[in-house]
Design a binder for these strands. Structure first.
Length: 586
RNA sequence: GCGGAUGUAGCUCAGCUGGAUAGAGUAUUGCCCUCCGAAGGCAAGGGUCGCUGGUUCGACUCCAGUCAUCCGCACCA
């Protein structure tokens, strides 16, 4: 309806040009939903925007525009108001057309073809597979999934990807930590490296699986393990030198094959755990993209070579540098260290290069806000490689802070006592977690109130929305209990019986849903959907309290039931886009 | 120091590419169940949109400066 009206304005401007008025090219008249009915349903401000360049008074120009504006049959009247707004009033009878549309489209109502099959990649979560996901990752997961689903709803072909950092030093630390715990299980006793993964839980589990499979075959005498290893930090040494030496020792004592087996066992078990965790959270990926695979097929070296060919690589102090300062970065960045090892940044360049090579029209990265310093350099590298960095959107997500009983809940990755996403889901449920995570704008700090998320009361914003859905279901159960069938066709024929203000209010809100989904999708702002659902539920609850649906008058009853069934459908579709269930009873 | 984010009602936050009288929830106060689930509804009070300038028909929105809070500034991932 909105698009249709905007096109009418476009042709009106065309007509004015034909009359000889110098209307600037490229002007797209935009309609906004009026906040209250006093200003009609839609308002257009094009007259005020064009008045000055044309040297006309806004209201005078609006008059001329109206004279040539084609009339849509669903428009009741058009008014010029205030400084030059053009207000459009939609015919009452047309307001309820949307109900039939919703009931016909069902789960498809709200979907559109705006993206027209364009391929977009959304990369999110991508947490290091060195342990279970914690609550910080949860927000990125919920947000990324919602953004992906919204884009899919407006017609994009969405490819969700998880970048598995399975090649870096952290993974070697993990493998070595597993092996050391395994040695403990075999009876050895020693001080565990301060920079290792000290968690007493999942690391032991992996070590136990290793022992189950191989007995003591991977063991080694403890004196050999620690012989000539530099001291750890608590002993006055350096924790990094200590752990790096232990990694080398593990590789030497185990040999390449067996070390790789330990490494892969840890990696696979943790990735599998993450995959299952996210699956239970309703978050799925089309692809899990391996950093190791990237290196094995030479993509990292290829990326560095391409940068070199384009003259953006220089050598200094034995290391290879990317001259990112030429593309707006603060300082140049190392891509290959003097010891021949490529940096994490180098594989990130290669990964993004491959993303562009795979031909996505748009690439979206969801990162934690603490990584914002990387935005410039990654875009710099893409520009240097000759790609359009404007196709890459990096969305930053601020951290979520958990509160319990009004107090900040403990959350520290250092001590290994972090609150995992799994624990959070068990405490408040996946629905509440998904909903609360996307309730706020992503770049806004999120205060996650655990008590509120758990509470089954009107304080809980999720229950408010789900309750509206369940209430409609309850009404339908009542209807069934009375033995009255619902005749949808009869309701359609009787839509004119809906005369109450609460009814037009509800229908208008329902009609806004597709526009809302489109806006939320294009802006990557699922929180807009959250706010909309709250308002829609509110409009329904208000209607429910003021009017009885199951009246004896069959026409009126059928019309009202159609309206609330349409409401239920929109609530369902909206919640579904956020990965939240719409229960029939609560 | 440099870069980024945030600053709107007591609290938590919306405010759609600049639009008409700045909105919700929550808390406070007062009402509404003989009737489809009160897990709900109705109403009232509550504001210098951090501050100062600028841009214009019009600024919470854009620009500059400034203050406050948070984050980042590795040959770590």
């Amino acid at each position: 309806m909105k698009n249709q009206l905007e096109n009418l304005f476009l042709s009106a401007l065309e007509a004015l040009r034909a009359e000889g008025l110098a209307v600037p090219e490229g002007v797209v008249p935009q309609l906004t939903r009026a906040k209250d009915r006093a200003h009609g349903d839609f308002a257009c401000n094009v007259a005020m925007q064009l008045a000055k360049p044309l040297g006309l008074a806004p209201r005078a120009f609006a008059e001329r525009l109206l004279a040539v504006l084609p009339v849509a049959d669903f428009v009741e009247k058009v008014e010029i108001a205030g400084p030059g707004f053009i207000n459009l009033y939609v015919r009452e009878s047309a307001v309820f057309d949307v109900v039939r549309q919703v009931l016909a489209l069902g789960a498809h109502y709200g979907r559109s073809a705006h993206g027209a099959g364009k391929r977009v990649m959304v990369e999110f979560v991508s947490a290091n597979p060195t342990g279970p996901l914690h609550v910080g990752h949860g927000r990125g997961a919920a947000y990324g999934a919602a953004v992906a689903d919204l884009l899919a709803a407006v017609g994009y072909e969405v490819h969700r990807e998880y970048y598995v950092n399975d090649a870096g030093r952290q993974m070697h630390i993990l493998a070595t930590s597993v092996w050391l715990r395994y040695l403990e299980l075999c009876g050895a006793s020693f001080a565990f490296p301060s920079n290792g993964y000290k968690s007493t839980g999942y690391i032991y589990d992996i070590a136990q699986k290793l022992r189950d499979a191989h007995g003591d075959a991977f063991s080694a005498p403890i004196e050999q393990v620690f012989a000539a290893i530099p001291a750890d930090e608590p002993q006055g040494g350096d924790k990094d030198e200590h752990i790096d030496a232990l990694i080398e020792r593990a590789q030497a004592l185990l040999g390449e094959m067996r070390y790789r087996e330990v490494f892969d066992l840890g990696l696979n078990l943790i990735v599998e755990d993450i995959r299952q965790d996210l699956g239970e959270f309703g978050v799925r990926f089309e692809n899990w993209y391996s950093e190791r695979g990237l290196m094995e097929r030479g993509a990292v070296n290829r990326a560095i070579e391409q940068l070199r060919e384009r003259g953006h690589i220089f050598e200094q102090e034995g290391a290879l540098w990317f001259r990112s300062t030429a593309f707006g970065d603060d300082k140049d960045r190392v891509v290959q260290r003097a010891n021949g090892q490529v940096t994490y940044f180098a594989s990130d360049i290669a990964y993004h290069m491959e993303k562009f090579e795979r031909g996505f029209e748009r690439v979206i990265d969801v990162w934690g806000a603490d990584h914002h310093g990387y935005v410039t350099r990654v875009k710099a590298a893409l520009t240097a490689l000759g790609y359009d960095a404007g196709k890459l959107d990096i969305l930053l997500v601020q951290f979520a802070i958990l509160y319990r009983g009004g107090e900040r809940a403990q959350m520290s990755t250092r001590s290994g006592e972090f609150v995992t996403l799994r624990e959070l889901r068990q405490e408040v449920g996946s629905d509440a977690a998904r909903y609360f995570y996307v309730m706020r704008k992503s770049e806004q700090h999120l205060d996650f109130d655990l008590d509120l998320a758990k509470s089954q009361s009107n304080d809980n914003p999720l229950y408010y929305v789900q309750y509206a859905h369940a209430r409609v279901c309850s009404v339908m159960r009542q209807l069934e209990g009375k033995g009255w069938p619902h005749d949808a066709a009869r309701g359609e024929a009787a839509m004119s019986r809906l005369q109450e203000q609460a009814e037009t209010e509800l229908a208008r809100m329902i009609a806004q849903f597709p526009e809302l989904v489109e806006r939320a999708a294009l802006a990557c702002e699922p929180h807009q959907l959250v706010h909309y659902l709250r308002e829609l539920a509110g409009a329904f609850h208000s209607y429910y309290n003021g009017h009885v649906f199951l009246v004896d008058d069959e026409d009126l009853r059928a019309a009202r039931l159609n309206l609330i069934l349409a409401t239920r459908q929109v609530l369902h579709n909206g919640l579904n886009l956020l990965g939240v269930t719409a229960p029939a009873s609560m």
